[in-house]
Amino acid sequence: MKIIHSYLAASITTALFTSPVFADVAEDTQDTQDIEIIEVSGDFHRRTLNETTSSVSIIDKDAMQQRHSQHLQDTLNSFANVNFSGGTSTARFIQIRGIGERSQFVDPVTPSVGLLIDGIDYSGLGSAASLFDINQVEVFRGPQSGRFGVNAMAGLLLLDSTAPSSDFNGEFQLSAGNYSEAMGGLAMGGSLGALGNARFSVSQFQQDGYMENTYLDKEDTEQRDELSARLLLDTELSKDWLLQTVLHYNDVDNGYDAFSLDNTRETLSDEPGFDRLESQALRLQLSYLGFDNSRLEMSVNQLDADTGYAYDEDWTYEGIAPGWEYSSFDAYFRERDDKTAEVRWLSDDPEALFGIDSEWVLGLYYYDKSVQLTRDYFNWDLGVPAIFESD
C-alpha cells in the first residue's frame, strides 16, 4: 500500500518590472473577455491544442505553481495514462499507456518515453527536470519517433522554459517546508543590446527526505540537493537570420535509502546509496526567415552527463543476524555523451505549396549517444568485490 504524506509549505513569488504598465478600462475589459489560446510547441508546426492530431496534454506555469511543483514528478499524476517508477530519488523512468522502463542496471537502455527540455534530449535523465521558470509541460501519448527519434516510441514529455523577451522582467521564488525543505529560485530576462534577448534562471532545492535511518541515527540518508541553471539567448544576426542559444547546467546530489524490512519509513542500511547527476548541455539553432511562406532551421545539440546510482543491496548492517547475514553494495557510474544535428525546411503558410491547403516538412535528423559504464559491486560467483566496465 502506498501512503502519501501531505505537508505544509510557505512560498513567495514576486515579479520584477522596470516600469509600470497602464491600460484604459476598455482595453482591460477586452482582455478579460479574450479566450486563452494554448499552443503546442512540440509539433513540427505550432498549432493550438484542439488542432493537433496527437493525443497531447498540457499543464501551464500557473497550474504548476498552484500544485507547488518543484520537479517533473510532481505533475505526472495530473496526466492520464502517465506513471513513473520509484526506483530512484526522483522520477527518472516514466511510462505512458503502460509502456516504458522501470529501471536500468547493467544493460544499455533506449528509453521508450522521451524527455526534451528546451529542445535538448534528456531521455533517461529525469533528474534534470526542475520546473522552476518552465513555461509549460507537454505530454505526447503514443509513438512520436517520426518527430523525436527512437527515444519516443511510447510517447514524449516536453518542457519549455520561459522564452526571452525584449522587456526586462523576472521573478524570484522562496519556499520552505518540513523535512528541512528549502527552495530558492531567480529568473531574469530582457534585452542585451546587440547580443539579443536573454533569459537566465537558477534554482536550488534541498530536503532531508522522508526516510529515517535508525541504524546510523540519520534523517537525511535520502536527502535531495538539486541545482539547476539555464540561459536562453535569441540573437538577430540580420533581418532574415536568427540564432537561438541554450545553455544548461544541472548538479543533482541526492541520497537513495528507500529499502525497509518492515515496509515503513525507517531503514537499517549501513551503506546508504545515492542518485547523482552532473550535466552540461548546449543547443544552437540557426533559422533563416527570408522565404515568403517557409523557413529553414538548422540545429546542433551537445549533452555531457555523469550519473551515479547506488544502493545498499542487503538493506541492513553487519551483525543483524550472525550466521545468516550478508553485506553487499551495488553502484553504477555512467558517462554519457550525446550529439544531435537537425536540418528542417518547413512551411509557415498552410497554403504555401502551389496554392493548395497543405503543410509540409523536409529535413534530416542525426543522433549519436555514447555511454561508458563502470559498475562497482560484490561478485557472488567469486566471493570478492569486483569492477565491471562496458562501452
Rank of each mutant, 00 (worst) to 15 (best):
332 Y>G: 02
390 S>P: 06
84 F>V: 04
364 L>D: 13
51 E>P: 03
124 G>K: 13
41 S>N: 09
127 S>N: 13
233 L>V: 09
293 N>Y: 15
128 A>I: 10
339 K>D: 09
165 S>H: 05
269 S>K: 00
3 I>C: 11
49 L>Q: 01
77 N>L: 08
348 D>L: 03
179 Y>K: 07
189 G>Y: 09
262 D>G: 00
90 T>Y: 12
91 A>T: 02
196 G>M: 11
303 L>S: 10
101 E>C: 11
94 I>K: 00
90 T>M: 10
186 L>W: 08
218 K>Q: 10
26 A>M: 14
45 H>I: 04
34 D>A: 07
256 Y>G: 04
295 R>I: 08
21 V>R: 09
161 S>L: 09
215 Y>T: 01
111 P>N: 08
168 F>L: 02
388 F>M: 13
39 E>R: 05
248 H>Y: 06
87 G>N: 02
141 R>V: 08
100 G>L: 01
13 T>Y: 05
17 F>N: 15
190 G>K: 05
296 L>N: 10
36 E>C: 06
188 M>C: 05
259 F>H: 00
206 Q>G: 15
251 D>G: 07
154 A>E: 05
220 D>H: 04
134 I>M: 14
199 R>H: 15
51 E>D: 04
77 N>F: 08
371 V>P: 02
192 L>T: 03
37 I>N: 14
86 G>R: 03
80 A>C: 00
145 S>M: 06
180 S>M: 12
388 F>P: 10
37 I>E: 12
147 R>W: 04
149 G>M: 02
362 L>S: 11
382 L>T: 11
388 F>E: 14
197 N>S: 08
244 Q>K: 09
258 A>M: 02
311 Y>G: 06
332 Y>K: 04
301 N>E: 11
132 F>Y: 03
164 P>C: 10
59 I>D: 14
86 G>M: 03
242 L>E: 11
348 D>T: 11
201 S>D: 13
203 S>F: 08
211 M>L: 14
87 G>A: 02
352 A>L: 07
127 S>V: 06
223 Q>M: 04
137 V>L: 03
43 D>W: 03
239 K>W: 11
128 A>Y: 09
60 D>K: 00
36 E>F: 06
35 I>P: 13
131 L>E: 05
188 M>A: 12
308 G>Q: 03
308 G>M: 06
140 F>S: 14
195 L>H: 10
25 V>W: 15
92 R>I: 07
131 L>M: 02
200 F>E: 07
